[in-house]
């Protein structure tokens, strides 16, 4: 069996890497036994975040980590870039807001798909950490 490693780092440099990252997110969550609804939510969330990287920063990275303990398991995805940063985080997290002509579902939409969502941004470093969790 060619199983993915418990942690995987994917460089995000082109549109192809968005596809690679969302596939990886789905594989890792399937491997940990998350149902298809969760797999789809996580894959979609990763797709949104990595697209932001391409769109606003040009390049960055996506780290997918599996965790399992006696209480359950979780997947954490950290997406970061060294772009200009988000000037107004509160605004970027508001529904309907977009600077790129998108639907504005990006960040607020992504936040609703996952159990945990954390974002920090300053010029030169934007990091979004999301996770989904499942009890055993």
């Amino acid at each position: 069996m060619n199983e993915p490693a418990p942690a995987e780092r994917i460089a995000i440099r082109s549109h192809n890497d968005i596809v690679t990252a969302r596939h990886a997110a789905r594989e890792h969550s399937a491997r940990l036994g998350f149902g298809r609804a969760y797999q789809t939510r996580l894959a979609t969330a990763v797709s949104e975040l990595t697209r932001n990287v391409i769109q606003y920063a040009g390049e960055g990275s996506c780290l997918i980590e599996e965790h399992a303990d006696e209480d359950g398991c979780s997947i954490r995805v950290s997406v970061e870039d060294h772009g200009p940063g988000i000037p107004d985080l509160a605004l970027a997290l508001a529904d309907g807001f977009s600077t790129s002509g998108g639907l504005g579902a990006g960040l607020p939409g992504t936040r609703r798909l996952v159990d945990h969502f954390q974002i920090s941004s300053e010029p030169g470093l934007t990091r979004v950490v999301i996770s989904i969790r499942k009890a055993r």
């Binding site: 298809r36 609804a37 797999q39 789809t40 939510r41 979609t44 529904d95 639907l103 504005g104 579902a105 607020p108 939409g109 992504t110 609703r112 798909l113």
Partner: peptide
Amino acid sequence: VQPFVAMTLIEMGRDL
């Protein structure tokens, strides 16, 4: 449209 896709789209935001 797959059921999980429908769920995810609606959870993300309306009218996608």
